[in-house]
Write a protein that binds this DNA or RNA. Structure first.
Ligand SMILES: Nc1nc2c(ncn2[C@H]2C[C@H](O)[C@@H](COP(=O)(O)OP(=O)(O)OP(=O)(O)O)O2)c(=O)[nH]1
Ligand SMILES: [Mg+2]
Ligand SMILES: [Mg+2]
Ligand SMILES: [Zn+2]
Length: 571
DNA sequence: GCCGTTTTCGGCCCGACTGTTTTCAGTCG
C-alpha cells in the first residue's frame, strides 16, 4: 500500500509551503489530504483504479491529479517544485519547540540559515536577536527548544500508553490534594486511548486557576516549567521527560473544556465548524449564541445541542464519526467487560513465569469463562519452546486441571512457529490434539512472510494468526508482509486475526483492525501474557478494537464458552 | 487546495501564553 508513502509526500509539501509562506489554507488542505490518506482502510491504488479518489473527503481535483501522477510515474511535479529552493536542513527545524515556520523563513531569508548548525551560529553571534520581532528572550526560548529537541531526538518521540500510566496517576493524585481542585479528568490522546501519546493532558475544575497552576508547576516531579498562566500551564516531568499540559476552567465550562481538551484537533475543528453553521460559537468555554452562554457543563449536552449523539472518545478522530453522530448512528463498541477469555497466554512450560493453575485462577478473578495456554513451539529455543514430549505432558496436565477446576475452562493450545519454509513447527498429529492453534512468525522477519503466513493458514488446525505485522512501538519495523494478502486469506479461511494487547505490540493496529473488519474477518483480543499481571493488558487491546470501530460481535472472545468452542470448530 | 442544495466565490476553529510591540505576531493547545 502506498497510502502512507503518499501521505508523507503531502506532509512534506505542506512543510515546504509553510516555510515559503504560502497561503495557510492551502497548507491545511495538504495536511488534510495527508491525514485522509493515512486514515484509509483501503489501498489508494485500488481506490484510484475504481475512479473513486474524489469520494475521499479532503481530496479534490487538484490533489487527485497529483495522486494519479504519482501512482503512474512514481513522481509528483508539485512536490519537486515545492521543495525546490528549500535547503534540506530547514525541514528538521520545524520540529524544534518554540521555533515555527515564520522564524525559520526569516532566518533563512535574512541570515542564510540553512540548517541546525547555522541556526546555532546566528544564535550565538547575536544576529538572530537583532531581526525584527526578535529579541533576547525569544532567542533564549529557541535555544531551549533546540536543547529539548536534541535530547528527545534518538529517543522515541511518543510514549506507549502503557508506559505513562504511573506518571498520570502521580499528577492526578497530587492535583486532587489541592483544595481548590473541584474535579479532574485526563483528556487528550490518553482519553481517546491512542496507542501512544505525545504528552499528557489534564483538565481541572476550579475557581483559583492561578493558584492551582502554581501548585502544579512547583510539584517535586517537575523538571521544567514551559509556561504558566491563570488558565493553563505546561511542564516536563522528571521521570519520563514527558510534557504535561494542565487546563483549569470553571465548573460551567467543564463539559465543553473536556470536549475541547479530548480532541482530536481535527474532530474539534469539524465540530466547531458545525456550531458556526448553526449560528453558535463553540470553544472550551461552552456553546455561545452572540456571546451569550448556552451550555457547556456536561460533554453530552455540547454534542446534543449541535444535533449529534454522544461520541465515545476513541472515535473522535474525524474519520466519519461526526457525520454518523449527526444521523444518530454511532456504533456500539466492544467493552472490556465483554471479554470472556484470553487465548494467548504463556506458562512456565515455555518462557512464561506462572504455572497453569495460577493462570487459571487469575482468569477466574478477571471474570473469564475460559483461558487458553499457548506456549512457544520447539524451534523458538530462546523462548523455551516446547518439545513434543513437553506439550503432550502439558495437554495431560490441562486435562487433569479441567477435571479439578469448576469455574473456568482451560483450552489447550500452542503458539506454533511458522518456520522459514512456511511449514509449522509441530506435526499435525500434535496440533490435532489441541483445542486451538495460533500460528506466529518469530524468525525470518523479512523472508517471504506473506507466503509463509498464507501457507500456515492452509493448515486445517490453524485458527489464529498472532501479532500479524510484528511491529514493535519501541522501534522494530515489523515483518516484510503484505497484510492485505494475509487478510484476504484469513477472510477466505475464516481465520481470526489477533489484536495483541501487549503495550509495545498493539498488533493489529487500529487501521489494520478496521480494515480486517471491513473485509469480514473476525478478530480476537489476546494479551500474550508472560505472567498473570500482564493478563490485565487486555484493556489495551480493547482500546485498539474500539478505535477500530469494532463491536462485540467482531471479537470472537466475547462469546461464552459454548459458542466460542463451536466457533473454533466450525467458524 | 477543498468545499457547497441558500453559495461555484469566499469562506476555511478558537483561544492562551509569551515577547515584542504601541496594537499584535508567533507558537502552541
Ligand atoms: N480546537 C482546537 N483544539 C486543539 C488544537 N490543538 C489541540 N487541540 C485540542 C485537541 C487535542 O486533543 C487537545 C490536546 O492537544 P495535544 O497537542 O496534546 O494533542 P493530543 O493529546 O490529541 O495528541 P498527542 O498524543 O498529545 O500528540 O487539545 C487546535 O488547533 N484547535
Ligand atoms: Mg496530548
Ligand atoms: Mg497537550
Ligand atoms: Zn506469544
Amino acid at each position: 500500500m502506498k497510502n502512507i508513502e503518499i501521505a508523507k509526500i503531502f506532509e512534506r509539501i505542506a512543510d515546504a509551503l509553510e516555510i515559503k509562506g504560502e497561503n495557510k489554507f492551502k497548507i491545511i488542505a495538504y495536511r488534510n489530504a495527508a491525514k485522509a490518506l493515512s486514515d484509509l482502510t483501503e489501498d489508494i491504488s485500488e481506490i484510484y483504479e475504481k475512479g473513486k479518489l474524489l469520494e475521499i473527503p479532503g481530496i479534490g481535483e487538484g490533489i487527485a491529479k497529483k495522486i494519479e501522477e504519482y501512482l503512474k510515474t512514481g513522481r509528483m511535479k508539485k512536490y519537486e517544485e515545492a521543495v525546490s529552493g528549500i535547503p534540506e536542513g530547514l525541514f528538521e527545524l520545524l520540529n524544534i519547540p518554540n521555533l515555527g515556520p515564520k522564524t525559520i523563513k526569516l532566518a533563512y531569508e535574512s541570515l542564510k540559515v540553512e540548517n541546525l548548525q547555522q541556526l546555532l551560529e546566528v544564535i550565538n553571534n547575536g544576529s538572530l536577536e537583532k531581526l525584527p520581532m526578535m529579541g533576547k528572550k525569544k532567542v533564549e526560548n529557541i535555544k531551549e527548544g533546540i536543547k529539548e529537541y536534541l535530547e528527545k531526538k534518538g529517543e522515541k518521540r511518543r510514549f506507549p500508553i502503557g508506559v505513562v500510566e504511573k506518571v498520570v496517576e502521580y499528577f492526578v493524585s497530587e492535583l486532587k490534594n489541592n483544595k481548590f481542585v473541584e474535579n479532574i479528568e485526563v483528556a487528550g490522546s490518553y482519553r481517546r486511548h491512542c496507542e501512544t501519546v505525545g504528552d499528557i493532558d489534564i483538565l481541572v475544575v476550579g475557581k483559583e486557576g492561578g493558584k492551582i497552576i502554581e501548585h502544579f508547576t512547583s510539584l517535586p516531579n517537575v523538571s521544567k516549567v514551559l509556561s504558566k498562566g491563570d488558565t493553563k500551564g505546561s511542564i516536563i516531568d522528571n521521570e519520563l521527560n514527558i510534557q504535561i499540559d494542565l487546563r483549569v476552567v470553571d465548573e460551567k465550562s467543564f463539559g465543553s473544556a473536556l470536549q475541547y481538551f479530548t480532541g482530536s484537533k481535527a474532530h474539534n475543528i469539524k465540530l466547531r465548524g458545525i456550531a458556526k453553521d448553526l449560528g453558535y460559537k463553540l470553544s472550551e468555554y461552552g456553546i455561545f449564541k452572540e456571546e451569550e452562554y448556552i451550555c457547556g457543563r456536561d460533554e453530552i449536552e455540547v454534542y446534543e445541542k449541535l444535533g449529534l449523539v454522544f461520541i465515545p472518545p476513541e472515535l473522535r478522530e474525524d474519520r466519519g464519526e461526526i457525520e454518523l453522530a449527526l444521523k444518530g448512528k454511532i456504533p456500539s463498541l466492544v467493552q472490556l467487560k465483554d471479554i470472556k477469555g484470553d487465548l494467548h497466554i504463556h506458562s512456565n512450560y515455555s518462557d512464561g513465569f506462572d504455572d497453569i493453575e495460577t493462570i487459571a485462577s487469575y482468569g477466574i478473578s478477571l471474570g473469564y469463562e475460559y483461558i487458553g495456554i499457548a506456549d512457544h513451539s520447539m524451534s523458538v529455543k530462546y523462548a523455551g519452546g516446547l518439545e513434543e514430549e513437553r506439550i503432550l505432558k502439558q495437554i495431560e496436565e490441562i486435562e487433569n486441571l479441567n477435571k479439578k477446576l469448576k469455574n473456568i475452562k482451560i483450552l489447550k493450545g500452542s503458539e506454533v512457529d511458522i518456520l522459514k519454509d512456511g511449514s509449522l513447527d509441530f506435526k499435525d498429529e500434535i496440533l490435532k490434539k489441541l483445542d486451538f492453534v495460533i500460528a506466529a512468525i518469530h524468525q525470518g522477519f523479512k523472508k517471504n512472510v506473506t507466503e509463509r503466513m498464507i501457507d500456515a493458514m492452509d493448515n486445517p488446525y490453524v485458527k489464529i494468526i498472532a501479532h500479524p505485522t510484528g511491529r514493535l512501538l519501541s522501534g522494530r519495523e515489523g515483518y516484510d508482509v503484505n497484510i492485505e494478502k494475509v487478510m484476504e486469506k484469513a477472510s477466505e479461511k475464516n481465520i481470526f486475526l489477533e489484536i495483541n494487547s501487549y503495550y509495545d505490540r498493539l498488533d493489529l493496529n487500529e487501521i489494520n483492525a478496521k480494515m480486517a473488519k471491513e473485509m469480514g474477518i473476525k478478530l480476537i483480543i489476546n494479551t500474550d501474557a508472560h505472567n498473570i499481571k500482564m493478563m490485565n493488558d487486555i484493556k489495551y487491546g480493547v482500546y485498539i478494537a474500539r478505535r477500530a470501530w469494532l463491536n462485540k460481535d467482531d471479537i470472537v472472545n466475547t462469546r461464552n464458552l459454548k459458542d466460542f468452542i463451536n466457533l473454533l470448530k466450525n467458524g
